[in-house]
Amino acid sequence: MSTHTHQGHDHAHDGHEHEGMLEDVELSERARRVLAMEELLAEKGVIGASEVQRLIDFQGARSPVDGARVVARAWTDPDYKRRLLADPEAALLELGYPLVGSAKLAVLENTDAVHHLVVCTLCSCYPTSLLGLPPDWYKSFAYRSRAVVDPRGVMREFGLDVGDGVEVRVVDSTADLRYLVLPQRPTGTEGMSEDELIALVTRDSMVGVGVALAPVA
């Protein structure tokens, strides 16, 4: 019998345990509900028993460094950048990044004239196929509600002051498109290699609350 208590349903357990679960961790009501739903979906054959774990493993294998590789390639290879903007899915595959699930990816290019900021007000849609799991603040009610009303104020709190001469475009990701911001290449990086450039591309710059780091002088 599993060690957590189920509330709200009383189906029989087959004596299985949740892999890796710690017995001394008190699960929240929401966590218990999620586990119960996962078990029911598996029992009813809607999902395979290992499917959720496989997806967790896949997302865990991605991190902002993967997005940084894509950005650095776009900075150094104009043809790649064109392909990335025109057909992001194919361009990501070139670098070995397949998208999973039904969601597709769109790339928003920041320029001298336009700065993009991404938010999901309805939930927490995020390009996990490329960047891994979103940071907690991205999922917070504060960010989701304020980014659409006061984007410049939110960005200032992240340390980014976007000038009034630059148009701010907030993108509310409400459907099945996931948005990746292509940040501007910092000045003074002309002679840098792709690997050196990768280190300048932060997660925040790919969400739009930041810009790429300046090279260390």
């Binding site: 659409v148 148009e167 701010v168 907030v170 993108v171 509310d172 990701s173 409400t174 459907a175 498109l177």
Partner: peptide, 8 residues
Amino acid sequence: GDVLLVDV
């Protein structure tokens, strides 16, 4: 000039 873009 600032805009909000929403998927609809």
